[in-house]
């Protein structure tokens, strides 16, 4: 029988634990068992059993000794419980969590429901990103008429949110676009 972790060496350590009333069996080789701290049963990572083998290793990608600045949760706590302390832990342990989430899920970006309160803001931010990308492309392609239209849309969105002052900071393109736009339209090729 091979080791459940490295899947190379022969398993010599057989661990049985009751986790939430469910029996869990893990077979490990000598070196992996040491690495996992099986010799010290209290230190054995419950996170591994709850979240699949390797979860505890993933979380260790975070620099050692990191604690959540909000709730004080540590990696050791995560290894023991397989649960996080608070919502800020997701940022505090982001480095290690990313690998774990990748193995667990079908992507790393939420694609579902957004609370209505945040949805407006989220849509606005995404729209701004889209418009700014479009603007950069339009300027690069010298489609100035299109660029002017995009610029006005960005202005409109920004004023809605932050008031007129913000526009001057964000608008990193000339105001006289419309003037140069007129001749450009004649030669513009439809893409």
């Amino acid at each position: 029988m091979f080791c459940d972790v490295c899947k190379i060496k022969e398993a010599t350590v057989f661990l049985t634990q009751i986790v939430e009333g469910k029996m869990q069996k893990v077979n490990l080789c000598e070196s992996c068992s040491k690495e996992k701290g099986v010799n010290d049963p209290t230190g054995f990572a419950l996170a591994d059993l709850l979240l699949g083998l390797g979860a505890a290793q993933e979380i260790e990608k975070n620099p050692a000794g990191v604690r959540c600045p909000v709730c004080g949760f540590s990696q050791v706590d995560f290894k023991k419980t397989g649960r996080l302390g608070c919502s800020a832990c997701y940022d505090a342990f982001a480095e290690g969590l990313t690998g774990m989430l990748k193995n667990m899920h079908r992507g790393l970006v939420h694609a579902g429901k957004v609370p209505a309160k945040l949805a407006v803001e989220r849509r606005r931010t995404q729209e701004l990103i889209r418009l700014e990308e479009g603007l950069a492309r339009a300027i690069a392609d010298e489609h100035f008429e299109e660029a002017a239209g995009l610029r006005d849309k960005i202005r409109h969105l920004t004023i809605q949110e932050n008031g007129p002052d913000e526009v001057n900071r964000i608008a990193a393109f000339p105001d006289n676009l419309e003037v140069s736009a007129t001749p450009a339209t004649k030669t513009r090729k439809k893409s």
């Binding site: 709850l50 979240l51 397989g82 649960r83 996080l84 919502s87 997701y90 940022d91 969590l97 774990m100 989430l101 667990m104 899920h105 790393l108 970006v109 939420h110 694609a111 579902g112 429901k113 957004v114 609370p115 945040l118 989220r122």
Partner: peptide, 17 residues
Amino acid sequence: FHNDLGYLTACPTNVGT
């Protein structure tokens, strides 16, 4: 709610929706 990860849950297996 997290901009990338969606609804945050105690266990990472439930995060997102």
